[in-house]
Each structure stands twice: as C-alpha cells, then as structure tokens.
Simulated assay, not measured.
Amino acid sequence: MSNDPRAVTAPNSGLQTRGVLGGRFVAYLVDLCVIAVLTFVLAVVIALLGVVTLGIAWLLFPILAATGVFYSIATVGGRRQATIGMRLFGLKVTGQNGTRVDPIIAGAHALFFYVAASTMLLLALDILIGLVRDDRRLLHDLLTGVTVVRVGV
C-alpha cells in the first residue's frame, strides 16, 4: 500500500480507493467492446442453431440482453475479481473488508449498474454519490456492499 497521506482507503479494509472513478470509466469502455464481441458471437451461434433446429433456438435471442450481467458474473465473481477492463487499469472488486465477491453479488452489482445506466437520472445519481464520497463508492456499490479498489499500489 502507498504511504501517500492523501490516499483514501475502503472502510475497515486498508485497500486503496483513490483515483478509481476515472479508471472505472475507461475500464467500462473496454468492457463494452468485449461485451459487444461476446454478444455478436453468441448471436451468430444462436442464429446457426436456429437454422438447425428449425427456428426453436431463436427463442434464445432475448438472453443476449443479459450478456453484460453474465460477463460480470464470470469475471467479477471469478478468481481475479475484475473484468478485463478493470484488470487493464489495476482495479478489482472486493466485498466487505477486502473479501472476495461471489457470483450472485457480482451479478446483482452489474444488474443494478445496467438499470442505473438505462436512465439518465439514476446514472447521474449513481455517479454523483461516487463523487461526493471519500471512498468513491457508487450507489450500486453501496447497494451490493462492494468496493472497487486499486491493486498493486
């Protein structure tokens, strides 16, 4: 951990949260690209399966809307506790006191974020809360009890 007296730490964990908001934004842009590729690949697979099953597999197309949530469950709820974008920017998601986030919490965290992102008002509130809090936790972080922290600092 850094000896910087201005460093802000997550409550009761000693993990650094200073400077995570900018990294989260850029990491999310990277993750959007990854999710877009995953969605495209899944759409092609479902389309081909639909041809083989005479259209029955096409009923799976609505699950493509949840690709981002499944991506978070697999990455944030996984061993590394971070999406690909987060890893690129030295971030990870932790639970209370720096504990690991389970897949259910990771999915709920992503779902709350996508609900907030679907409306400008909720997204603005989500970001505003992160800007005024010392630990830089956004509203959907608070609702799920997680903290995004810097690793290797």
Rank of each mutant, 00 (worst) to 15 (best):
H109D: 04
G85K: 00
A43K: 02
T9G: 10
T119E: 09
G77H: 06
F113V: 05
R6M: 15
V30P: 03
G98W: 01
Q81N: 12
N97R: 12
G78V: 00
Q81Y: 02
R6Y: 14
D134P: 14
F25R: 09
A82T: 04
V37N: 03
A36Q: 10
G23F: 06
L64K: 00
A66I: 14
T99R: 09
L49K: 03
R133K: 14
L121E: 14
D31W: 01
L15P: 02
L143H: 05
A10Y: 04
R137C: 08
A124P: 06
H109N: 12
G55H: 12
G90H: 01
A108K: 04
F40V: 13
T17A: 07
P11G: 13
R87A: 09
V44K: 11
Q16E: 14
V115I: 15
D31R: 03
L139G: 00
S2A: 13
T144A: 03
L32H: 08
V45H: 00
V76E: 04
S72R: 07
N3A: 13
L122G: 15
I127D: 01
G68Q: 10
G98F: 01
T144G: 07
Q81W: 00
G130Y: 10
A124M: 14
W58H: 13
P11K: 08
L111W: 07
L21D: 07
G90Q: 00
L131S: 12
I104A: 14
L131K: 11
R136C: 01
V51C: 01
G130M: 12
R24H: 07
R133F: 08
D31F: 06
V115G: 02
G55P: 05
T75Y: 03
